[in-house]
């Protein structure tokens, strides 16, 4: 049973009203600029690289909750599940410019990529110093060996955290871009979900999926994936997913990884903890070291009853950057983090 009703006012005003409310609640961190983009309330110091991300709305707290110290600088929010246009992105690039160049981060989906390319060209015409990086992680969207064709998913979490810390610490534009690519190349993500959700503006379901069937490889807009057929237990599901992830990313004994269990919307912390229990066991059996784990709602698909499991290979530099302090409305890394289970 798909929940079709949303508590909103005018369905066509969901996005601006959502932005206004979220920003008002987090005004110590973020504000809306004159063009409706979400920017930091206190811009980062001059001479540091700016980080911009555009995305369709409906995935909150992505990415409005990721603007702040140690994270990103500007979020250009598009309509529901629809990439923002090039002019809005170009204004976002301008807003993020602190004199050291801007990295335009693109989660690889057709609309996001095309609009970003147009914005990137326009920014160059305006003589802005800008680089663009295409990011992807979703193993189910293209086979191994064709990673560059994959779509962006929840695993980009690690890019925001690590590159955010690098830019905050004074990393150059080329260093930030290179790090974004390195993190991207070390992340693998798979999703699983029951059923689908509705577009909150239109009330129409996003896919024709049977609620009772667990599907692995569901996209961030509810795109259908591969039906697992029978009833899997949590442990069997994680075994299946981890086996694909570890194989696809060629993770081996001795690797250090960070793990993300992202709630797509309607999972319980109880379920996610049960799932992580199996992840932890499998990584230990594989002699893969776990640096840090984050379980929570980072990028949602409305109230989709599903989750994304991401594994990111991290080296010493990435670990240091991952542990650096950060404060966003939806994610924070405290300054003191010396109690780390290894």
């Amino acid at each position: 049973m798909v929940r079709t009703r949303r508590l909103v006012n005018d369905p066509t005003e969901i996005v601006p009203e959502m932005l206004e409310g979220y920003v008002a609640a987090n005004r110590h961190l973020i504000r809306l600029d004159d063009h409706g983009n979400v920017v930091r309330a206190h811009p980062k110091a001059h001479g540091k690289v700016g980080l911009v991300i555009g995305n369709g709305s409906g995935h909150e707290p992505a990415m409005i909750g990721w603007i702040g110290p140690g994270l990103l600088d500007v979020n250009v929010a598009g309509p529901i599940f629809t990439a923002p246009g090039p002019a809005a992105l170009t204004r976002g690039i301008e807003a993020a410019d602190r004199g050291a160049g801007v990295l335009l981060c693109v989660s690889q989906h057709a609309g996001d990529v095309m609009n970003a390319r147009l914005a990137f060209e326009e920014a160059l015409v305006r003589q802005l110093r800008v680089e663009m990086v295409l990011l992807y992680d979703d193993v189910s969207s293209a086979p191994k060996g064709q990673e560059h064709k994959r779509r962006g998913g929840a695993g980009l979490f690690f890019v925001w955290k690590i590159v955010g810390a690098l830019a905050e610490g004074g990393g150059s534009l080329s260093e930030c871009k290179e790090m974004a690519e390195r993190v991207r190349d070390g992340v693998r993500t798979l999703t699983a979900a029951f059923g689908t959700v509705v577009n909150p503006a239109s009330g129409e379901p996003l896919a024709s999926v049977d609620d009772d069937h667990l599907v692995v490889g569901v996209g961030v807009h509810g795109e259908s994936g591969r039906d697992t057929g029978g009833d899997l237990s949590a442990h069997e599901l994680v075994q299946h997913m981890m086996s694909r992830l570890l194989d696809d990313g060629s993770f081996t004994a001795g690797d250090q990884v960070c793990v993300l269990l992202n709630n797509s919307g309607a999972m319980t912390v109880m379920e996610l903890s049960v799932l992580y229990r199996s992840v932890h066991t499998i990584l230990a059996e594989s002699e893969i070291g776990v640096h840090r784990v984050w379980i929570g709602s980072y990028a949602t698909t409305q109230d989709l009853a599903g989750f994304a499991l991401s594994v990111c290979r991290v080296d010493d530099e990435m670990r240091r950057l991952y542990d650096a302090p950060a404060t966003g409305a939806a994610f924070a890394m405290p300054a003191r983090h010396d109690v780390v289970a290894r």
Partner: peptide
Amino acid sequence: ASACAEAMGGASGAVFAA
């Protein structure tokens, strides 16, 4: 082109604008 880029949105907006 500008109207497509701004008011159509998404992939089609970019394609028509281009």
